[in-house]
Design a protein around this nucleic acid. Structure first.
Lengths: 249, 249
DNA sequence: CGTTATTTGTGCGTATGTATT
DNA sequence: AAATACATACGCACAAATAAC
């Protein structure tokens, strides 16, 4: 029995998630050592190799660092340091003092590229286009492409289905409360792009102006992509900051 | 012997680097499948587990993706030079497959803005300007401003002091071995900017083209800023990727 | 439609080396 | 010097997904 797991969730992934949660909840702060491989193996009734795979993933994520002969430690991530992953809460907090204005209401559309990035079988996605303003000043243009299941739970939200509607919502905020599985992580890619006409019109800049393009794919806890957001920011009003740190100490 | 490696370089890391190089050199493009685990194990005279660990790292880096029952494939990167810069090690590893070409050699210059960002008392910094190429193709223009103490230890490095010099160095790699305190972290800020003439000339693009601008300030273990790097990337050939994770719920 | 071969995924066991305390 | 703890490597068995027949 201990040798297999029919549920499909790998033992090392379960263990990795458990340790990740514990670290995020600030157990093992200061220099506290995490349990040794042998201890965790005994506690969880798995082999030491399974514990090692879990730790290997956590090291790759930057959650912990390991020192031969001493042990495993949570990577410092408050105060001076920040871990390599930003948090989704930061993104949700975006709505605090900004407004969303719908440019093209939520509707089913054909978009091969977006569909493939959401790993859909069909070519149709549900799309809503809006801009975000702060103090009446537009600073971000966003096209959100949704998985059909995600679009279904947002179909009756007037803030997204009526052109010109203004609200202080965020899509992930709306999705998070309505989906059965909450959103757990996002893959983000950042690049630069020139403003095309619709973007320039929406943002009040000139065609060809450089914009910061931020694509995010949001994944639920079971790793299913539900939302692809393509954002274009005015660089004068937005920059993306992170801290990098050395993985070994 | 097959069971140990006194040189200190782990077999799976050697294999991972070899495969990484091959992928960056565009072998395995389109949908070509990489060799199977069994094939690589036989070729390199290692066990299948060792091959698996090499692939595990490459998957974490986003270099390849794997499909059970089908095989391992190079991650599609539409002509982009793609690497994860989530840690300082990643930046040091940049030298593995890119070259540095000096445009303006290291020299003392007056730059009020750079000096203040390095928290210097005077207005003078030491600056070197170069571009970075991959496969003979320029993809990044960089101006590095150094703290006088950092510049002092690099004053006799011909790769930085001679115009037109080409090397595979990285500034932080050079600094790290020469400074008494190693580099521990970096603050990074990302935005977009239009290409000005010298940038367009160096990168072979048109004036006004959108570029991804990445500023990094490197700090030593005692929190002293020693280097300010201002990078401009061609967006077609570079994008910045991170994963975001929800902290807790 | 099922069967089979291929290929990756997971788990466990063991042995040995290296770094730290 | 000894004990502890992580690092690397090899081996085996079986599960699950895919593709070809």
């Amino acid at each position: 029995m201990s040798s297999k797991d029919q549920t499909g969730e790998a033992a090392y992934k379960v263990l990795a998630r458990e340790l990740r949660e514990a670290i995020l909840q600030r157990r093992y702060v200061d220099g506290t050592r995490l349990p040794t491989e042998a201890e965790l193996a005994a506690e969880h009734r798995v082999s030491r190799q399974t514990v090692r795979r879990a730790f290997h993933d956590l090291v790759a994520e930057g959650m912990v660092y390991r020192v031969p002969g001493r042990g495993t430690f949570a990577a410092p991530r408050d105060g001076q340091y920040l871990r390599q992953f930003g948090s989704i809460e930061d993104l949700m907090g975006l709505s605090l003092d900004t407004q969303l204005e719908v440019l093209r209401p939520l509707r089913r559309r054909v978009d091969v590229d977006a569909a493939s990035r959401l790993r859909l079988d069909s070519d149709a996605v549900h799309t809503v286009v809006f801009r975000r303003t702060h103090d009446g000043e537009a600073f971000c243009h966003t096209a959100v492409h949704l998985h059909p299941a995600a679009a279904a739970v947002l179909a009756d939200v007037p803030e997204l289905t009526e052109k010109g509607a203004v609200s202080d919502a965020t899509i992930i905020g709306l999705l998070d409360t309505r989906l059965s599985n909450p959103i757990a992580e996002a893959e983000q890619s950042i690049t630069a792009a020139a403003a095309e006409k619709p973007l320039a019109d929406a943002l009040g800049c000139t065609i060809g102006d450089p914009l910061l393009r931020v694509d995010r794919i949001y994944l639920t806890t079971d790793q299913h992509p539900v939302e692809l957001a393509i954002n274009h920011f005015l660089p004068e009003q937005y920059s993306y900051r992170v801290k990098l740190r050395r993985s070994t100490h």
